[in-house]
Design a protein around this nucleic acid. Structure first.
Lengths: 130, 130, 130, 130
DNA sequence: GTGGTCTAGACCACA
DNA sequence: GTGGTCTAGACCACA
């Protein structure tokens, strides 16, 4: 029933886990523009986490333009230009792909092989969803 | 002219930077099995870094089976089964690819688009090397 | 009254002494799963030892799956499958027994004699506890 | 064809490996009293090891009374009272057994179980020799 | 308050 | 000369 999930022992800072989770939810359209997010206190209680941790994640999301703080009324999903958010998605993915290709290159594995691996994994995913 | 390079301001701990750099060099065959690595002190001097930091990286590499410590004679690249290290390379890459696909999926971007993006980036890399 | 004891002059590195002591305490059930361990600084103060030394021991214990690091909240005994840890106990003991038998064999002492010696010593221990 | 074998990457100091290997060979009667050991130089060449390392092992063995240095003629197995060397064997084994029992106790495994484990392993060894 | 990282420098075992 | 261990003390991210 919780909105968000974290794994406290994963090594990734909790605020970052929250940040990227909500970031994706917004980019994905899971939260509509203008929609209210659960309050810092609610999330903190649900996840058994320090309120400051939640607050830090919300603060970052505000800074990046994903959320808008309505004074006294909590956080709300920001109005965003659809084109911009598409752009952001691709920026995120491109960064990951570049890292992937760099690593592959340093291990002496060429582009063909990487594309084959990606295709293969993508199909595996597809099947597992059927 | 240094064997290794670090970026002290990247936020990634220096010993981890060294670890993954050397890990890739070994997997890549840049260092042959049995070959001596530069001594802790040499690396420390070159990079203007504390010997313990280098030592920590070397220690991790030994634990993972990449290096072998010869008492009093320094560190040497471990004998490794070629098949095993191929396997490791693919394990590393597959892990990265799975993350990529998960992220993409959560952002509502399908496999086709991802493969297109990867192909595109791979070609960009290729060109920039020519 | 200290939780842990070390002998600084034994030649065995302090971090290793701590590691195997805590390892046994966890395997033994002295610390329950989820229980908090004393903080690095507490232990360091008690034993009059550098915090980094304690930290090194804790780090090893985390790596081996005995402890879990809760960010900003200290170390906690990991959830472990009881069957697995039983297995680990026996692995440790079997390794010691095999060494014992190899040594005995190399000295021309047969299995009967070894079993007799073990039985004898076990009874001595028992008596000294009464 | 080598008299002795070492494993340079095992973590155990080479001089200690040599020491205990020769100790057992003497206790076991593999080397008779008065018999010559190979020279420091020979062993060092065979094992591709620093002569000082061999020398250190021989020195320790002399100190413990296993070898006698004949000036200008090399090392020779010492004349030893049979009773004494029996005693030494048992001292070594008893020490190992005590460690075993201590460990077992700290892991909550009782004497019966340990004796069972030893018996079981001893029989396994016997079978594998047939 | 918690652990993580790093430095500067000392001392040690091993070869 | 090689790596291993430890200290004292600093600074940092995280909660």
């Amino acid at each position: 029933m919780d909105q968000f999930t974290i794994s406290p022992s994963s090594g990734v800072p909790i605020y970052k886990q929250l940040f990227s989770q909500i970031e994706r939810m917004v980019l994905n359209g899971y939260f509509a523009a203008g929609e209210h997010l659960p309050s810092v206190r609610q999330v903190a209680t649900n996840l058994e986490v320090n309120p400051m941790t939640v607050s830090k994640a919300y603060g970052l999301l505000e800074e990046r333009g994903y959320l808008t703080r309505l004074r006294g009324k909590g956080m709300v999903v920001a109005q965003r230009d659809e084109a911009v958010s598409q752009q952001e998605k691709f920026k995120m993915l491109t960064k990951m792909i570049e890292e992937l290709l760099t690593q592959a290159q340093q291990m002496g594995i060429n582009e063909q092989e990487i594309i084959a691996l990606v295709t293969e994994n993508a199909q595996k995913d597809k099947k597992s969803k059927e």
